[in-house]
Computed example of a mutant assay.
Amino acid sequence: MNRENVLVIGGAAGIGKQIVLDFAGRGKKVAVADINKKALDQLINESGRPNDIFSFEVDVSNWESVQNMMTKVKETLNSIDIFVYSAGITKQVSFLNIDWASWKKTIAVNLHGLFFSTKAVLPLMKNKNGGSIIIIGSGSAITGSGGGIHYAASKGGAFGFMRSLVGELGKEGININVIAPRVIESDMLDRLYPSEGSKNTLKKEIPIGRLGKPSDISNLTNFLSNEESAYIHGQIIIADGGRTFRPKSG
């Protein structure tokens, strides 16, 4: 069965934006939701696909906002075949210096938002014959890096969230997996590593010798969303050019 309707949350910039553009380029109807209205408008204008991409403003940390957004998505597309959760925030800060507001906001967007969004979208997927949920996580949940403990903890929570749904969603014919990127060219990477020198240091740690591109993640997302990958379920797939488990000398 064809999977035609897509919802990407956190799709106005970075990896999420590339995922939206790639799905639309493959002939899908794509609902994209984000808190940044200006970036959403810019995405629609840049894409040149106003009949294929539909934008919705949402605060994923707020249950009522997510519900209202999903009502509008249902009115526009009726049902969802592929759901991608790509919303995420981080900030470079040490454990001793992190405050409660930063911890709470990061968990609210990266983890509560995932819960709210999945809870709200499932009724639009269960009336279909199968589907796919892809969570854009992070290798930071494995390494403890990525800006701070708040980010790593929130992404680790996404791992557990996904694995807890494997049995329940499998019975519905819905696959769920996590993609765990590391060091992808994006606004977030620029904030964490603002200088060329810091980026060059990162490149030296990556066996394939380059930073990741948003298209590296969108290509993997597309694969996990189609029926050829239907036997891949409940997995965490690291996309990092070999950095996390690179061989070390000495």
Score class of each variant (00 low, 15 high):
64 E>Y: 06
93 V>R: 08
82 I>P: 12
84 V>H: 13
73 V>M: 06
94 S>P: 01
63 W>R: 13
88 G>K: 05
66 V>W: 05
66 V>P: 09
72 K>N: 15
97 N>M: 03
85 Y>M: 01
73 V>S: 10
100 W>D: 14
96 L>D: 10
84 V>G: 13
95 F>N: 09
102 S>G: 03
65 S>R: 08
80 I>F: 10
96 L>S: 12
86 S>I: 02
79 S>N: 14
64 E>N: 14
82 I>N: 12
88 G>R: 01
84 V>E: 13
66 V>M: 09
90 T>C: 09
63 W>E: 12
88 G>L: 01
74 K>C: 03
93 V>M: 07
76 T>A: 14
64 E>C: 06
78 N>E: 15
65 S>Y: 05
66 V>T: 07
94 S>E: 08
72 K>I: 00
64 E>V: 12
67 Q>C: 07
71 T>E: 12
72 K>C: 02
77 L>V: 15
63 W>Y: 10
89 I>A: 07
97 N>K: 13
75 E>Y: 03
90 T>A: 09
77 L>E: 08
94 S>W: 00
79 S>T: 15
79 S>P: 06
73 V>Y: 08
89 I>V: 15
73 V>C: 06
79 S>V: 15
94 S>M: 06
68 N>F: 00
66 V>G: 00
94 S>C: 01
81 D>A: 06
94 S>H: 05
67 Q>L: 08
92 Q>E: 09
80 I>M: 10
84 V>L: 14
95 F>E: 09
92 Q>N: 13
92 Q>Y: 04
98 I>H: 02
63 W>K: 12
91 K>D: 09
93 V>S: 08
77 L>Q: 11
78 N>W: 07
92 Q>A: 11
99 D>G: 11
75 E>W: 00
90 T>G: 08
67 Q>F: 02
89 I>T: 11
97 N>C: 00
89 I>P: 05
98 I>W: 01
